[in-house]
Computed example of a mutant assay.
Amino acid sequence: MNLENYFISQFKSEHIGDDGALIKQNVYSKDAFFENVHFKHEWMSYYQIASKAMMINISDAVAMNAKPKYALLSVSMPPRITKKQMKELASGFKDVADKYGIDIIGGDTISNVKLDITITIVSQTKKPLLRSNIKKGYLIAFTGELGRSKKDLKKLMNLGKIHKKSKFIDIKLRDKFLSNAERFLSSGMDISDGLFSDLDKLSSVNRVGFKFNTKILKSIGCSGEEYEMLVAFDKRHKKAVLRRAKQSRTPLNIFAKSVRKRYVNCCKANHF
């Protein structure tokens, strides 16, 4: 058990274990976006930093087939920040919030040596998509293309430049696909720690392993911050799910099925 999982295990709650905490029809989710951990100023504008911080938090709501309603922002800012930069940050938060119909209802601001952001999203759902409910023989698929985020991060770390539409900066969520296919999906989560690492989470919850029908390179399977969807469904629903993916113009890659065997994650932990 890595240190992150060990720490989480100290809190015994039936609501911990999905992309957000489901309480009745409400979903509560929260993620951090910290300078020198998740980003550097040289890589992104203040507008892009705020936009991505919002998007990675909305991703948790979308992953649970929930509609985000409210946001609470906590922003720690260094004394060197200018009013112009503050306006850029605020515009990034507001533009993404407006796009998804979210009301920013409060939060906290403090002085700090660097720019750190945490956001709480409150969402609502009538048909939540959880990480559980995978049975033997279910098909496992991911949306979109994986691997690009890790490649672009490597470029940035080597002082290179990436396109402003790079997935590392400009995240595209799969909310239309999920809402269209909700009747047929049994399980889902967003791919934030990498495909192989997130499969490990599904494996633990459902006590299943996976038989791959296509080879996935480690460089792709270990690429984090993709924010694509990882979903499972009964093979009887394959045509229906593929049809709805096509309708929402969502590439869907069926790459494995669930089996009764142990799953081993080959990726290095992203956190501790």
Rank of each mutant, 00 (worst) to 15 (best):
T214A: 11
K215W: 07
K83C: 08
K165D: 08
L252I: 15
T120L: 10
K167Y: 08
L252C: 14
I81Y: 00
I171A: 04
I110W: 11
T118M: 07
V208M: 11
K155D: 12
P79N: 03
D103K: 15
M44S: 04
I119V: 13
A50S: 12
F210D: 03
D175I: 08
I220S: 07
K268D: 11
K165P: 07
I134L: 06
S187D: 01
L178H: 09
A32T: 15
I117V: 11
H237N: 15
I56R: 11
I119Y: 03
L73G: 03
Y227E: 03
Y6V: 11
R249Y: 14
F212Y: 04
D95L: 13
T143H: 01
T109L: 14
F233V: 04
K257E: 10
S9M: 13
Y227L: 05
Y138L: 12
S186D: 00
I56K: 10
G92F: 05
V62Y: 03
N5Q: 05
K150V: 04
A181P: 07
M44L: 06
K246I: 01
E145A: 13
D95Q: 14
E35D: 01
K114I: 05
E228N: 08
M55K: 09
N213T: 08
V96L: 04
V62L: 04
K30M: 12
L195M: 06
I81E: 00
M77A: 07
I49P: 00
K127P: 05
S76W: 01
G194M: 11
F177I: 06
L153Q: 13
Q247S: 13
K176G: 05
A53G: 15
K67E: 14
L3W: 02
D234N: 14
S179V: 08
F255V: 15
G17W: 01
P68F: 10
F33V: 13
K40R: 09
P128C: 01
R148I: 14
E225L: 10
I81S: 00
I117H: 02
I102F: 11
V96E: 05
D98Y: 04
G194E: 10
K150A: 09
K52Q: 12
R131P: 07
L156P: 10
G194Q: 08
E35A: 00
K201A: 02
L202R: 10
G160I: 15
I49F: 01
V259M: 08
D116S: 15
I56A: 05
K172P: 09
L3E: 01
K238N: 13
L173H: 04
V259W: 08
I105S: 09
G188R: 01
F255L: 15
R249H: 15
L153G: 09
T118N: 05
N213E: 10
K246T: 03
F34W: 08
D98P: 05
K246C: 02
P128H: 01
S187N: 01
S74G: 14
P128Q: 02
Y227I: 02
S45N: 09
K201D: 01
I140C: 04
L156I: 11
M77K: 11
C222V: 00
M157R: 07
R174M: 15
E182Y: 13
H15Y: 11
C222F: 00
A232K: 10
L72T: 06
I140W: 03
M229G: 00
S111P: 01
H41M: 08
H41T: 07
K24H: 13
R260H: 06
D200N: 15
N206P: 02
A66S: 14
D95F: 11
R207T: 07
M1P: 06
L139M: 13
R80T: 13
E42V: 12
L73W: 01
M229D: 00
